[in-house]
Amino acid sequence: MGMIFSLVAVIVLVAIAFMGAKQNLLGLFGVAIPYLAVLVFIAGFIRKVIKWGQSPVPFHIPTTCGQQKSLPWIKHSSLDNPSTTLGVVGRMALEVLLFRSLFRNLKTDMSDGRAVYGSNKWLWLGSIAFHVTFVVVFIRHLRFFMEPVPTWVNAIDAADGFLQVGVPHLLITGVVLLAAATYLLLRRIFNAQVKYISLPADYFPLFLIIGIAVSGILMRYFIKVDIIKVKELTMGLATFHTTVPDGIGVIFFVHLFLISVFFAYFPFSKLMHLGGVFLSPTRNLANNSRAVRHVNPWNPKVKLHTYEEYEDEFREVMKSEGIPVEKES
């Protein structure tokens, strides 16, 4: 149900953009909505991070995944169980750039009456392919918002087209992004456990991103648009001298509208894991809580059962057992 709902939602979005472009509402779809979406993205993102920041980290709770630093002759695991800030930076870098934790993934099966744990790197591979290509595709698109196009953006673009097939050159990241997003979607549909836990909020972003990738690929290789005019429009957005040239092609507005929806949806969704991963207290703290005191800003005053109360209750038996007491009676 969640899947169908999300699919229909994305199809409706495509239809809206299609009709909007046909109706020549180009100012709305080419300028107003993109600006609004970016605004919502920035404001929503900041609001969410502030919200997280307002809740303190009362306790020092890293999940330790390696040997602690204790005695000098015991080799300690400086990345999986960091004891210093530098170590934490390393751990976070591994987590954010290489998906360290996901790389540990296993698959549990029952076989011949016993549980067995097999290596299972597919989710890691699919995820890293998805995220890396997403970033590269994002960077490649900077060429539409910069003039002259920086050398490093051109370099990435050239590297992306290393296969040198087709005209224009096939950019491998777009294809991999689409493939990886499709894998993540199929996994949600065909892995019974993942299907069981999936919400509309899990299918929707995948369909949306697939929609963005498909419209982008169509536009580059199949339903050509006037790229010069596209750049005129995007540069107008970037420099706040907006202009909407005629005759760009409907597919571009579909692409742009889906991206706008993606941006506007982002801060209200699970996509915020982009910001959240950096704040996760089980990952971003050094395991040094016995060496450096962690302060809880709301450390509560609590009612205690004092030693005096304890001795008052048990003084006689303590004395009879020869256990020292503070007061004789």
Binding site: K48, W52, N105, L123, K270, V277, S280
Partner: peptide, 8 residues
């Protein structure tokens, strides 16, 4: 907020 329900 941030769980993506990847199922890992």
């Amino acid at each position: 907020d941030i769980c993506v329900r990847c199922g890992a």
